[in-house]
Amino acid sequence: MHPIHRLILSAFAAHALLASPSAVAADAAGAKDHPLLTRFKGAAIAEYKVSAFDEAVLPVKAIPAVDKIGAGDLAKVEGKITRIGYVIEGEKTALEVMRNYEQALSRGGFQVVFQCASDACGRDMGGYIANSGKVMPTGFTASFDEKSRYLLTRRSGPDGDVHVLLWVVEDPANKRTLAYQQIVEGRPMATGQVSVLSASDLKKSLDAEGRVAIYGVYFDTAKADVKPESRPSLEEMAKLLTSNPALRIYVVGHTDSAGGLGANLELSQRRAEAVAKALAALRIDPQRMVAKGVASLAPLASNASEAGRARNRRVELVQQ
């Protein structure tokens, strides 16, 4: 664990109002706290999303109106983004929740970039965060202007900047408080992972090794729909099969180890079937292809690092 993670976890544990994840039930399926921060006592995760690499646009000033946002009102950052929507049952104030996070983040070396409360945040702050974050507990888009708090902090280090955004609102009608947390771990995107192999390159690898790994087939996280930008790689695979009519292949889907094995087996199978279906749409006889998903059972690298996980997320063609 990174030293800064230990500092923040210790700061939270030292405060009686914060609880360990094991003390909280009813989280959304597959959801968990970010390693950087524990949760406020009594909180449950209602919404959860992780993007390995994406862009976040973070308010650094009040948002009085979405249609009047200036160029200097927002900061664009890239990296791994974890978005978590918490529901805290009971009538905790937004101030109480936010002060706990402020103390822990300060002890962990985070500096305040911008913070505000209620009307000082601007009329459209909540709406902007709800629409840009896309992960909110039910009811978060409602207006709680008089009982809301916003905090954006940053910590700089040799591995890049880490931003923590918090938006806390009281919902007294339902006797609860809603907390949205977005953590952006800035890091350069891993490049050089993907190249579109030509049909002749694919054939050479199959002849030499009986298989070829393809990194130019893209899916959204936890989904099996082949994205349009996969077209160049699909066309080269189709050329390979068209020019070698006797060739029969297994289309094998691989994932990293994130998530449960059962879910990844099912996901990798659906992805393999989606690739076979896409090739069939390019006039390849479906009888020449067998789709198989093996999840994380055949890694090419350690799943302990993002670079290793990126290598392991792939589609392979294996000669039958």
Rank of each mutant, 00 (worst) to 15 (best):
Y150Q: 00
V194P: 00
K223S: 15
V169N: 11
E209C: 12
P232N: 02
R248K: 12
I88N: 12
S198N: 10
M136N: 15
A246Q: 11
V162E: 10
R309V: 04
T242W: 09
A281L: 04
P232D: 03
V135M: 06
N174W: 01
G186S: 11
L151G: 06
Q103G: 09
I8Y: 02
A295L: 00
K41Q: 14
R231D: 01
H34Q: 10
D27M: 11
G186T: 12
R314I: 02
L178G: 09
N100G: 15
A274P: 13
S156L: 02
L202G: 06
T242P: 09
D161I: 08
L18D: 12
A274E: 14
S10D: 13
K32E: 13
E170N: 06
S132C: 02
S296Q: 11
P21N: 10
R231C: 00
W167L: 13
T138W: 03
A307I: 07
M237D: 11
A224W: 14
A280G: 10
V112N: 06
D256Q: 02
P21Y: 07
K239G: 03
R271P: 15
G160W: 07
D73C: 10
M125R: 05
P286N: 08
A310I: 05
G262V: 02
P245Q: 01
L166H: 04
S118V: 04
T242A: 11
V113T: 06
L58V: 04
I214L: 10
G108K: 07
G216K: 08
G42A: 05
S106A: 13
V226T: 07
A71R: 13
G210T: 03
I88D: 08
V112P: 14
P286E: 10
M289S: 08
A291S: 15
A224H: 14
V194H: 05
S22H: 12
G85M: 05
A26E: 15
S143C: 03
R313C: 07
A13F: 14
G308N: 05
M125Q: 09
V113H: 02
D161L: 02
A310Q: 02
Q181M: 13
K292P: 08
M136V: 15
V87C: 01
L178C: 09
Y48A: 01
V294T: 05
R313W: 03
S230R: 08
M136F: 11
G72K: 08
P64M: 07
A44P: 15
G85F: 08
R311D: 08
V24P: 00
D207I: 04
R154K: 13
P64Q: 02
Y101V: 10
G260A: 04
K68C: 00
P35Q: 03
L17S: 14
Y150N: 00
A26T: 09
V164Q: 05
E96Y: 10
L300Q: 09
R313P: 13
L206A: 03
R123S: 04
V66N: 14
Q182E: 09
E266K: 09
R271H: 14
A23E: 15
A304Y: 07
S106H: 07
E55A: 09
N312P: 06
A46K: 03
Y150K: 01
L297T: 12
D124G: 07
G109K: 00
A71P: 10
V66K: 13
I81N: 08
P245H: 01
A117P: 02
L202A: 06
L105M: 14
K41D: 00
V113C: 00
L152Y: 14
Y218P: 07
A31L: 07
E266Y: 02
L74G: 11
M98W: 12
A25C: 05
L202K: 06
A13T: 09
G293W: 06
S205N: 08
